[in-house]
């Protein structure tokens, strides 16, 4: 059984935000508009966090693409009363929109604030609905949504590989953000496969997990932006 994981090389990432829009496009994430955005309702399954360090003129900025870390030990899972947030066999934190009743408990428990709530029924002003991806279900008011590691792509590739009677090749599955990333900062694959690029990168001495000490065992590894040649 695979364990899907991602590596984000912060030495490559330039903060462009391509992944953010790619994720909106792939996953039918609705825009909420300026009024709701100002009330904290924008939904960005992946966000490029940026942090300032130092003061002018010795100032630096750090970018960190942050999405659901698909925790191995996900705090969002045990708290969900309906199993809408649950663990799949291949280590994903699955979110079953249909089963979610909107307690928002999972989002409180998520240390990464990776979960976004549908405060209103998502809508698209015609004909923007034509852009919707038929592989991804639409959410309704009152449910929680978040990065799925583009599970529709994972399952699609699994099915293709199965019908073709072969294993999935490393790099064959590309979540939308990974595919979009111009700098190739994001790499996706099977962590169980020691040969895969993501597993190699995850073992890099530059690698670390976000909020590792909270005990969530994330599937995302961040490779530090070291200036020394490492």
């Amino acid at each position: 059984m695979a364990r899907w994981g991602m590596a984000a090389d912060l030495d490559r990432c330039n903060g462009c935000g391509g992944c953010v829009v790619a994720c909106h496009a792939e996953n039918n994430i609705s825009t909420v508009g300026p009024e709701q955005a100002s009330r904290g309702r924008a939904k960005h399954w992946i966000r490029v966090e940026r942090y300032w360090e130092g003061d002018f003129p010795d100032v630096k900025l750090k970018f960190r693409p942050t999405m659901c870390q698909q925790c191995g030990n996900a705090p969002c899972e045990p708290v969900c009363p309906t199993y809408a947030s649950h663990h799949t066999e291949d280590g994903l934190n699955a979110q079953v929109y249909n089963r979610c009743i909107g307690t928002r408990y999972c989002a409180n428990a998520c240390p990464y604030n990776a979960r976004f709530f549908d405060f209103f029924n998502p809508s698209w002003e015609k004909p923007l609905q034509l852009q919707l991806n038929p592989d991804v279900s639409l959410r309704e008011v009152g449910v929680m949504e978040k990065c799925t590691f583009c599970v529709q792509r994972i399952r699609g590739t699994q099915t293709t590989a199965k019908t073709e009677g072969r294993e999935i090749r490393d790099g064959e599955i590309q979540p939308a953000c990974v595919q979009a990333c111009s700098t190739r900062a994001l790499v996706f694959g099977d962590l169980e496969d020691r040969e895969s690029e993501v597993s190699r990168l995850s073992r890099s001495p530059r690698g670390s997990k976000l909020l590792e000490d909270v005990g969530t065992r994330p599937a995302v590894t961040y490779l530090a932006r070291l200036t020394e040649e490492a």
């Binding site: 045990p78 009743i101 549908d118 009152g142």
Partner: peptide, 30 residues
């Protein structure tokens, strides 16, 4: 009152639904 979808509040109740979907007994809300 605080549920996003209050009409489904009964999914938190343990009852033998035809799909045998029980609530998650690990959840403090249960």
């Amino acid at each position: 009152i605080h549920l996003g979808r209050p009409w489904l509040a009964f999914w938190m109740f343990p009852y033998p639904s035809e799909r045998l979907i029980w609530p998650n007994f690990r959840s403090p809300l249960v």
